Amino acid sequence: MPKVWIYLLALLCALGLAVSVAVFALRPFESEPSTSSYTLRDWHGKLALFAPGETGAGDQPVEVYEVYTHLLPESDVLSLQAGIPLESQEQLQRLLEDFGL
């Protein structure tokens, strides 16, 4: 009789595992459009943080950092001229550390 319970328990575990795998495999991936809240850009030769929607040449930055962009590598300068969209505060902190702040 104890072997029957062991087999029944193993069967229930296998069934639970199969259902879990099926639910995760068949569930459609949720793809949210990537909306950045802030943008890190070059502003008058310095590193600056811009609020959402602030993309024009006359826009004022939220914060200007004491990092001169002409001292950065060329690839970073080109990225900053195009604007680096930020997804989180952690990403902003990581980039500021990379740029020497």
Score class of each variant (00 low, 15 high):
M1D: 13
P2E: 12
V4K: 13
W5H: 14
W5R: 14
W5K: 15
I6E: 14
I6S: 09
L9H: 07
L9I: 15
A10I: 11
L11Q: 10
C13F: 14
A14G: 14
A14V: 10
L15I: 11
L15V: 06
G16M: 12
L17I: 12
A18P: 00
A18W: 00
V19W: 08
S20I: 08
V21E: 09
V23R: 06
V23T: 14
V23K: 03
F24K: 14
F24Q: 09
F24E: 11
F24P: 07
A25I: 11
L26V: 09
L26P: 05
R27T: 13
R27D: 08
R27W: 15
R27E: 13
P28L: 11
E30V: 12
E30F: 09
S31I: 02
S31H: 12
S31A: 11
S31W: 08
E32Q: 08
E32G: 01
E32Y: 07
P33S: 07
S34A: 05
S34T: 14
S34Y: 07
T35E: 13
T35G: 09
T35F: 13
S36D: 03
S36Q: 00
S36T: 01
S37V: 13
Y38I: 00
Y38G: 05
T39N: 01
T39D: 10
T39E: 05
T39W: 05
T39H: 02
L40F: 03
L40A: 02
R41D: 00
W43A: 04
H44D: 13
H44G: 03
H44P: 06
G45C: 03
L47G: 00
A48G: 04
A48Q: 01
A48E: 01
A48Y: 01
L49Q: 09
L49N: 04
P52I: 12
P52S: 14
P52M: 12
P52G: 10
G53D: 12
T55P: 01
T55M: 06
G56E: 03
G56D: 08
G56M: 00
G58S: 15
Q60F: 10
P61G: 08
V62G: 05
E63L: 05
E63T: 08
E63S: 05
V64L: 04
Y65V: 05
E66D: 15
E66A: 12
V67I: 09
T69L: 02
L72P: 09
L72K: 04
L72N: 03
P73S: 10
P73D: 11
E74P: 04
S75P: 02
D76P: 03
V77T: 02
L78E: 08
S79C: 02
S79G: 00
L80I: 03
L80K: 00
Q81R: 04
Q81P: 01
A82S: 13
A82G: 07
A82R: 14
G83A: 05
G83R: 11
G83Y: 02
I84W: 04
P85I: 00
L86A: 01
L86R: 07
L86W: 02
S88P: 03
S88V: 07
E90F: 04
Q93I: 13
Q93T: 09
Q93E: 15
R94P: 00
R94A: 15
R94I: 02
L95G: 01
L96S: 08
L96Y: 06
E97V: 08
F99S: 01
F99L: 09
G100S: 08
G100W: 02
G100A: 09
G100V: 02
